[in-house]
Design a protein around this nucleic acid. Sequence first.
RNA 1: GGCGCUAUCGUCUAGGGGUUAGGACGUCAGAUUCUCAAUCUGAAAACCCGGGUUCGAUUCCCGGUAGCGCUACCA
Length: 492
Amino acid sequence: MANPRLRFAPSPTGYLHVGGARTALYNWLYARGRGGTLILRIEDTDADRSKPELTAAILEGLEWLGLDWDEGPYYQSQRLGLYRARAAELEQQGSAYPCFCPPELLREKRERAEAERRPWKYDRTCRQLSVDERARRRGEGRPSALRFRVPESGQTTFNDLVFGRVELANTEIEDFVLLRSDGQPTYHLSVVTDDLDLRVTHVVRGADHLPNTPKQVLMYRALGAPEPVFAHLPLILGPDKQRLSKRHGATAVEAYRRQGILPEALINFLALLGWTPRGGREIISLEEMIAQFDLAAVSKSNAVFDPEKLAWMNSEYLRRMPLEKLLPRVQAELEAAGLWNPVLTAAEKKRLEDSIRLLQTRARSLNDFSGSGRAFFSDDFSYSSEAREKFWKEPQLAEWLTELSRRLMDIHPFGLEQTERCLRGLAEEKGIRAGVLINAARVALTGQAVAPGLFELMITLGQQRVARRLEKAATDLRQAITGPLNEVKGTP
RNA sequence: GGCGCUAUCGUCUAGGGGUUAGGACGUCAGAUUCUCAAUCUGAAAACCCGGGUUCGAUUCCCGGUAGCGCUACCA
């Protein structure tokens, strides 16, 4: 097809969740790869459940992911006239009829059928009402919904790009409602109307819509309108194989953003949930995705969302990201944590950049910069208890660290080799393994048991700060030893 | 319940009438040593079950089972 037109049509009854994000992504990839147009449409015909702030959140989520659109957003709540016109057209040509059955009565019938374990479909009570009878009831002011007149026999078949040929006996399809008695359109009416009006050529959406598609196909045919190509996407499941929901923890795209996941990583991860690029490489650029993506290659089976793999992918992106791209993101992270200094000297800027470079090789998330990496951006950090227990065991450590601090102050230049020679020399003199000193110093400098290599870390932190922190650690160690004794003495 | 869809390692998947059934995440072991990550090497790990077609089925067909979806005057 020459210039495909696709749409992403979220309903603002919740935040943008990962399933919706993947649907948006697949639409976007297909459109971008084929010179197509992507339309954004907000399906807010359910006035009770739709909330404007949720629309805003969805838009923000899409923007954060970098998924832009060419037309819209259209709001279905502002296009009611269109739906009513389509409804009238269907009614005039006999493809739809008014139904006067009160909703309560229908509910009763349905419940009774369920209790008796009979399958229930609308019983078509109003299907063959005469013209006069309809006019009479309307004259009485009885409210009516508009129902689609489904053929009583035959099959409805369509070809789905993902699932292939799908067919359903028309006897399985009930006379569904197009227009509610309050004049509001239902989903089926509004999608078909809009997809027609917006000249949508490819309907790409979740597989939860697959069973309803025959109804829409019937509408296109009744209207004599060209049918779009359908592509239904398998669902994303939680680890228990249940449909992904709040119970599984983070489902909203926003939650991953807060967890320090990069949008690039989330996109890449989502792209792989149901689709495999040729060549087997899993970390691929957006350009490659666009070039390779094909709806026909999408998997038919549901996929379990694996947060572990996402975390891995995030660390890959973090590690590979060039500094100029990473810097603004780390800045945002540090700002949020109150660790950002807006005024930097050239030397401080260099130190900041070196710190980021050092941290990024082992970061799993953006949060690591303000979390375990805090000591690189602030003197106000604490020693993790795990680190102290693991590496601050030797009783003479305070003495050694003081000595190390002193000796390091005398080094010039303060370089990688010099600092290492200095520390190893001291270790040898004291008859201890260098590792003992290295690990203890790492805790003193970063507060962490896990951090970058010690000597790189020292260079990045700078001579003065290193000496100061070692000395402070020595002081803290001495206090930790004498402190409890004093307490004992002080207690009568 | 009815109808539909789906079924390859724990997870995401490649593959396809004859393969040592491939890769990735995760897991385990080893190398490295300065913690951790990275890296390298290695290992364990899968074709849901039963029939049929066929010289030969994981692959094709049918049935079963399981999972999911739909079954609203929600979307």
